[in-house]
Nucleic acid binder design. Structure first.
Length: 272
DNA sequence: CGGGCCCCCTGGTGGC
DNA sequence: TGCCACCAGGGGGCCC
């Protein structure tokens, strides 16, 4: 599942392939991926347009075009965005194909069709589409900012972490990883966390996300970066996908429960 | 306000 | 071997 680290990796790896390239053709094979336009409209707007760079906001990717427009992509569950030479054989689950004058094509592949593509006329519209809470890896994201995001609510802390309007970019994997690192039970009420716990959670979120980026993202199943390479971070996960295995911190066994409708793995001994 | 559920959707898995 | 219920979950919507 592409979360902040994976989308960041896609951004970084795709940028050198698109920067300065002009679109030659834009085909949409599954119109349901498009939110606010038709395949014909997308083609009209993209053909002849030039990519400048790529931005990330939360789990949203914004491909900036000359003239201030953005092609906005959300990978949701199984989306992949890669920049590779045109393939002769038709890729399975290919939903959109953008060919460029540098001989490279952007391939949007999305098995389960949850991914979404938007058009934003300018930067403000991009930010309106990608309207999410503070970026957890930004300098402005202080322990106080986390306290503000979690304070004054009786929501379970895991639900809070998954709420994109409170904090941007955290999904099921990094919510579980962060709560384990901080030693906080996922069902604790967010508003009940004390200052020390908030600080530990703040550190844990930053560490979990930064480590994941260093390891090229987490590939559980579908995720690959813009070059088509899998990530390595799944080898370093402490709890996600490890239910029934022993805790890395004590002798206990990791347990699996449902929180906010999501599979949740935690250590009953380390996370009170 | 917050929890729970459904929907979108496909492929892998496990039971029978 | 086949069939089928069930599960995975990002995000939005709805109900209670």
């Amino acid at each position: 599942m592409p979360e902040l680290p994976e989308v960041e990796m896609v951004k970084r790896t795709i940028t050198p392939h698109i920067t300065g390239a002009t679109v030659v053709e834009a085909q949409v094979l599954w119109p349901g991926s498009l939110v606010n336009m038709t395949p014909a409209l997308l083609r009209d707007r993209l053909v002849g347009a030039r990519f400048i760079t790529a931005h990330r906001r939360g789990k949203y990717l914004g491909l900036a075009l000359a003239g201030d427009a953005y092609l906005v992509v959300h990978l949701r569950m199984t989306g992949r965005l890669t920049a590779r030479p045109l393939k002769s054989t038709q890729e399975r689950h290919l939903r959109m194909l953008i060919t460029m004058d540098n001989g490279i094509a952007l391939h949007f592949v999305d098995q389960r069709k949850f991914g979404r593509i938007y058009w934003a006329a300018d930067r403000d519209e991009f930010l309106r589409i990608a309207q999410v809470g503070p970026e957890p890896l930004a300098d402005e994201f202080t322990p106080q900012a986390l306290a503000a995001a979690l304070g004054g609510t009786k929501m379970k802390v895991k639900s809070c972490l998954l709420d994109q309007r409170r904090i941007a970019g955290i999904g099921n994997i990094y919510a579980d990883e962060s709560l384990f690192r901080a030693g906080i039970h996922p069902e604790r009420s967010a508003g009940s966390l004390n200052e020390g716990e908030i600080f530990r959670l703040w550190q844990a979120i930053r560490t979990s996300l930064a480590n994941a980026i260093e390891h090229g993202g987490t590939t559980v199943r579908d995720y690959v970066d813009g070059d088509g390479s899998s990530g390595d971070n799944q080898r370093f996960l402490l709890v996600y996908g490890r239910a029934g295995s022993s805790c890395t911190n004590c002798t206990g066994i990791l347990q699996r429960i449902k929180v906010a409708g999501r599979g949740t793995v935690f250590c009953p001994r380390c996370q009170k």
